[in-house]
């Protein structure tokens, strides 16, 4: 059993990535070493990654870093990632102003120290600030209000 759970998990993650990329690479033409197809290079890399993943686990067994994984800020993570997804999904349709407001509002709530009024205030201030800098200052060509909003 490895001394370090961290190393074991990291190794497994690399092996998983290696296998996933390797499996996908098999779907592309491999060619030969002399005339490489699109799948050749990724397949070789995927193989190396799996080997390195095993290496990480072995290293962990011999000289693990120890220490537990610690906590994961589930709520914060969900809010921040959700805020980003919302931005990507809505910015073209809702326009920059409302999208950014919601994005910042959600992101701000990720902190347990921020309540709803503070988050709203922060969202308002940052939205105004960003519009001033990006749209008026740098000339980013994004509509402030998008086509989804008109009835």
């Amino acid at each position: 059993m490895p001394k370090s759970v961290k190393d074991l998990l990291a190794g497994l993650a690399f092996i998983a990535f290696g296998l996933a990329f390797g499996y996908a690479a098999l779907g592309y033409e491999l060619g030969t070493a002399l005339r490489m197809g699109p799948g050749y290079f990724p397949l070789v890399l995927a193989g190396i990654l799996v080997a390195l993943g095993i290496g990480v686990i072995v290293e962990g067994m011999l000289a693990g870093e120890g220490g537990d994984i610690g906590t994961v800020p589930w709520r914060g993570a969900a809010l921040i990632l959700g805020a980003l997804v919302f931005f990507g999904y809505a910015v073209q349709g809702l326009g920059l102003a409302p999208t950014l407001f919601v994005t910042v509002f959600l992101a701000a709530l990720a902190s347990q120290r921020t309540g709803i009024p503070t988050a709203a205030l922060l969202a308002l201030a940052l939205t105004a600030f960003c519009i001033a800098i990006f749209v008026y200052g740098l000339g980013v060509t994004l509509p402030l209000v998008g086509p989804w909003l008109p009835v």
Binding site: I80, A83, L84, V85, F87, G88, Y89, V91, Q92, L96, L100, T103, V104, A107, A108, A110, A119, L122, A123, L126, T127, C130, F134, V140, T141, L142
Partner: peptide, 21 residues
């Protein structure tokens, strides 16, 4: 939250591609 806001607009304005976000 400011970092998130700047990063979203900045990244999006490169190619106007939601996938970048």
């Amino acid at each position: 939250p400011a970092i998130i806001a700047f990063a979203s607009i900045g990244t999006y304005s490169i190619n106007f591609n939601a996938f970048d976000i």
